[in-house]
Design a protein around this nucleic acid. Structure first.
Length: 289
DNA sequence: AAACGCCCCAACCGCTGCGTG
DNA sequence: TCACGCAGCGGTTGGGGCGTT
């Protein structure tokens, strides 16, 4: 049996909000707040809407200081760098952009920024096959994005470094492998280089089989390193974003000196914590793409 | 002017995690 | 420990707007 519906679907209005409904909702919340109970709010406010719908309308449109309109280059940069690091965690990304909502950013990414990054002109007519090819290219590029521009790394040298890196003794072997990073939560600069060579080699082989290459690993590390440098040990919300301009020597340092711990973003407190459970959970999402 | 197709975005849907009894 | 209810989140959808034919 499924979950009980949050409201009586037959008696709630759906679709676009009218100005009158907006006014009712805004005036009610201005006066009484949400009371921490969105389900009860529409009834109290005299709205024939589902509580979830009210919440969404308030958060995405009515609440104060919402910023609409064009995204700046700086906002683009923040979105790109965070997407490269944590993937489609829109709420976390939105927390870095005052006035922007997760929905806004998600829409902006899906409709504009992604295409902008990939250099896709709008309204290009494509066959199904072309569309499939483009989708594959997009998947490959987006999880290992190339913006901001990545330095060029010698692939064989990187693989060699990766396999030679010493495992930090404190870490349990079951958490030692972490490739990806494009859409998982782990944000350690050096966890990619940790321990167990056999498992690492297996993972490398697996990624090779999936069509990723060593440049992808570099890209992954690049994103993770930026996040770790900017946020490790600090409250995520208050940390300055790290510059992304790591050169090869810096990346090499990060790989060969795995001195910091593994950090996972704690999504409720927006802090970095060393949490094996969370890390393991994040790992489960790694192959999602 | 009409038809068509694409784009964008507000809103919805369903899932997950957390708090509570 | 379990079930339940809720808030929050991310993916998806539908329809209006707009450009093109």
């Amino acid at each position: 049996m499924g979950r009980a519906p949050c409201c009586d679907k037959a008696n709630v209005k759906k679709g676009p909000w009218s100005p009158e409904e907006d006014t009712k909702l805004k005036e009610f919340i201005d006066k009484f707040g949400t009371g921490g109970n969105w389900i009860a709010l529409p009834h109290k406010a005299g709205l024939k809407r589902c509580g979830k719908s009210c919440r969404l309308r308030w958060l995405n449109y009515l609440r104060p200081n919402i910023k609409h309109g064009e995204f700046s280059d700086e906002e683009d940069r923040v979105i790109c760098s965070l997407f490269a690091t944590i993937g489609s965690r829109w709420s976390i990304i939105a927390a870095q952009l005052p006035g922007r909502t997760d929905n806004d950013i998600k829409n902006y990414w899906n409709t504009k920024l992604k295409k902008k990054l990939l250099g896709i002109a709008p309204s290009q007519k494509k066959s199904n096959q072309q569309q499939q090819q483009q989708q594959q290219q997009q998947n490959q590029q987006l999880f290992f994005p190339s913006t901001p521009p990545l330095p060029s790394f010698p692939q064989d040298v990187f693989r060699s470094l990766l396999l030679q890196a010493p495992p930090p003794p404190a870490l349990s072997s079951q958490y030692q492998i972490s490739f990806g990073g494009g859409n998982e939560q782990s944000c350690s600069s050096s966890e990619i280089s940790y321990g167990n060579k056999e498992q690492q080699q297996q993972q490398l082989d697996q990624y090779d089989h999936m069509g990723f290459n060593d440049q992808s690993y570099i890209t992954t590390l690049y994103g993770s390193a930026a996040a770790a440098a900017g946020g490790a040990g600090q409250a995520w919300g208050s940390s300055e974003l790290a510059p992304l301009e790591y050169d090869y020597e810096e990346i090499k340092q990060l790989i060969t000196n795995p001195s910091d711990s593994n950090y996972i973003i704690n999504s409720s407190s927006n802090t970095f914590v060393d949490d094996p459970t969370a890390r393991n959970a994040a790992r489960g999402k790694m192959m999602y793409f």
